[in-house]
């Protein structure tokens, strides 16, 4: 679809719809944001100094520990090991999961056969089968990739399917009235319409993938961020354990937030179908 993708190209000249990004999400005026940070980290610091528990370091110690881990290279090494399966897993979901979801949306037979399973899997705690994956595929990359795929696939498939099925019937009818073939209806109306929801699915899939890779690393595979967490916990270096956890939560949150912003830029509410 050569022309239908032109909205993805932000360099397209001409009038662009006004974006109402400001009305989205919590208010992010600087002062409030700062007080929000101060409040959160202040409470953390106070709780750590009080202390709540010997295993609860204050914020300041955690920051120092994080700096140490960044300096000695252990953090970078861990992230290389954690993010690799995550990226591979999401790419697999992006190709196979999205393709499958589109197939479900386009074919009644595929929908009939697979929808009940996908619905069940989406609500199911897929984490339960992670022990089995590691049992079968050991503690290497394959096991981690599979953990990511199993966690992320249901939501990716479901969103792609919903995107296709929610396509405005009126637009499909219009395309048929102007002699669009089945192929053209899919390429020029259905897929562009579903694109935003498919992207949302991939973002939610990535969120699940973060959970999956962390569980896989915590449960069995002594590598990556999970290993940093487990190791420092076992030798009672709690500030380093906290630093590792805080860093993965931050990385996940920032990545997902970035993708959400990107989604609003690529598919502003005004021009998205869904």
């Amino acid at each position: 679809m050569p022309r239908s993708s032109n909205r993805l190209n932000s360099k397209t000249p001409g009038r662009r719809p006004a974006r109402r990004l400001a009305s989205y999400g919590p208010d992010r005026t600087l002062a409030w944001q700062l007080s929000s940070f101060v409040l959160f980290f202040g409470m953390w610091e106070a709780a750590g100094r009080w202390p709540v528990s010997a295993a609860f370091p204050p914020f300041s110690q955690t920051v120092v520990a994080l700096a140490e881990m960044a300096a000695d290279g252990s953090l970078a090494q861990a992230y290389a090991s954690t993010l690799q399966p995550l990226v591979i897993g999401i790419v697999i979901c992006g190709i196979a999961g999205v393709g499958f979801g589109i197939g479900m949306g386009l074919s009644r037979a595929v929908e009939w056969f697979t929808l009940p399973v996908v619905i069940i899997l989406q609500a199911a705690p897929m984490a339960a089968i992670i022990p089995l994956i590691t049992y079968m595929y050991g503690i290497g990359l394959t096991a981690k990739v599979l953990a990511v795929v199993f966690m992320a696939a249901p939501v990716v498939v479901m969103n792609s399917y919903k995107g296709i099925r929610n396509t405005s019937p009126s637009l499909v009818e219009m395309c048929r009235a102007f002699l669009g073939t089945r192929r053209q209806v899919v390429a020029k109306v259905v897929l562009p319409y579903a694109a935003a929801l498919i992207f949302t699915g991939l973002r939610l899939g990535l969120a699940m993938g973060f959970i999956g890779v962390v569980i896989a690393e915590l449960l069995i595979t002594p590598t990556g961020i999970g290993d940093l967490i487990t190791y420092h916990s076992s030798v009672a270096e709690y500030s380093k354990m906290f630093a590792a956890i805080a860093s993965i939560v931050t990385v996940a949150a920032l990545t997902l937030y970035g993708l959400e912003r990107l989604e609003h830029v690529l598919f502003p509410a005004e021009i998205r179908g869904a």
């Binding site: 709540v52 984490a127 969120a207 915590l218 354990m241 939560v249």
Partner: peptide, 16 residues
């Protein structure tokens, strides 16, 4: 926290 991997926080809970 609505989208962060809460599973990563479990080791904290186990320690504390």
């Amino acid at each position: 926290f609505v989208s962060a991997p809460i599973s990563a926080l479990v080791p904290i809970l186990m320690a504390v």
